[in-house]
Nucleic acid binder design. Structure first.
Length: 264
DNA sequence: AACTCGGTCAACCGCTCCCGC
DNA sequence: TGCGGGAGCGGTTGACCGAGT
């Protein structure tokens, strides 16, 4: 048994892309749009795996990509979001228009980790490095217990995460709150992360270049299955509000009265 | 000039999720 | 309801490059 391979490995190129391959891919997507990655290589005359084409397009060729160094503000946003979401690079990327998950992941591993360590903060837990008494419950969305990774409830209804006022049942003491404030020190970004109910929508059923833009991804409802591993029963929308730029709910959530149940 | 080493980042791999049949 | 295939995601790899010796 076993899965069929995603492509005919014997006849596919690997490694760095050539300019000609890039151009073929760009031309093809310009005409036909994104999607059908499996069949795209053949249609575009590329000897590449579909996955490779997709990655090349998303991480390098997409016209809406922002190249260049990360700003200080972007750094802080990434740190904040990572403290909430853990290594959910695609979700973090969704909050940074023009940046890709791969780019952010690399940037995290090469720059931000060191930056946090130099601040005396553990990049995984976002707690002070010298802290001896490690609780298994720390930040609301620390990797070990945030709902996007190992903690996968069968079903969620509606979630509100307010970083500045975390209502974690395990984050109860003044001491812990104080530690949390210290670990945030100069980060005064207002980061309210809200997960609410949204009407069921098909996940990127008709992918287009616009539907994959970072901004549209933010507006796009994220199903709970995407977040929790496929066992939940209702789609969930992520409304992210922070930095004073996006205080409004998305259209889907505005249509829902079910909202704001404290979580974490 | 040659070599080593560490940092960076594009690309690959393997797994999971979701949808359609 | 179960299965297979397509797509997406996160972790890892390895080529490349510049700084240091």
């Amino acid at each position: 048994m076993g899965r069929s391979p995603c492509c005919e490995k014997a006849h596919t190129n690997k490694g760095a892309w050539t300019k000609e391959e890039d151009q073929r891919l760009i031309d093809h997507i310009r005409i036909h749009g994104e999607g059908c990655w499996r069949s795209l290589p053949k249609a575009a005359g590329l000897f590449r795996c579909g996955k490779s084409c997709r990655l090349r397009w998303i991480n390098y060729l997409r016209p809406d990509l922002k190249r260049g160094n990360f700003t200080e503000e972007e750094d802080e946003i990434i740190i904040k979001l990572h403290s909430l979401l853990g290594n959910k690079w695609s979700l973090i990327a969704g909050r940074l228009p023009g940046r890709t998950d791969n780019e952010i992941k690399n940037y995290w591993n090469t720059h931000i980790k060191r930056k946090l360590i130099s601040r005396g903060i553990d990049p995984q837990t976002h707690r002070p490095l010298n802290e001896k008494n490690h609780h298994h419950h720390h930040r609301c969305f620390h990797r070990q217990n945030h709902p996007y990774s190992s903690f996968r409830p069968k079903k969620i209804e509606s979630i509100t995460l307010e970083e500045n006022n975390c209502t974690s049942s395990s984050m109860t003491t003044d001491e812990e709150q104080q530690q949390k404030r210290e670990s945030n020190h100069d980060q005064d970004i207002n980061l309210d992360l809200t997960i609410g109910l949204a009407p069921a929508t098909k996940r990127e059923s008709t992918p287009t270049s616009s539907s994959n833009s970072a901004e549209s991804r933010l507006q796009q409802p994220v199903s709970s299955s995407q977040l929790y591993g496929g066992e939940s029963t209702r789609p969930v929308c992520l409304c992210w509000q922070f930095g004073g730029e996006r205080r409004e709910m998305c259209r889907d959530c505005q249509n829902q009265s079910l909202y704001h149940r404290s979580y974490c």
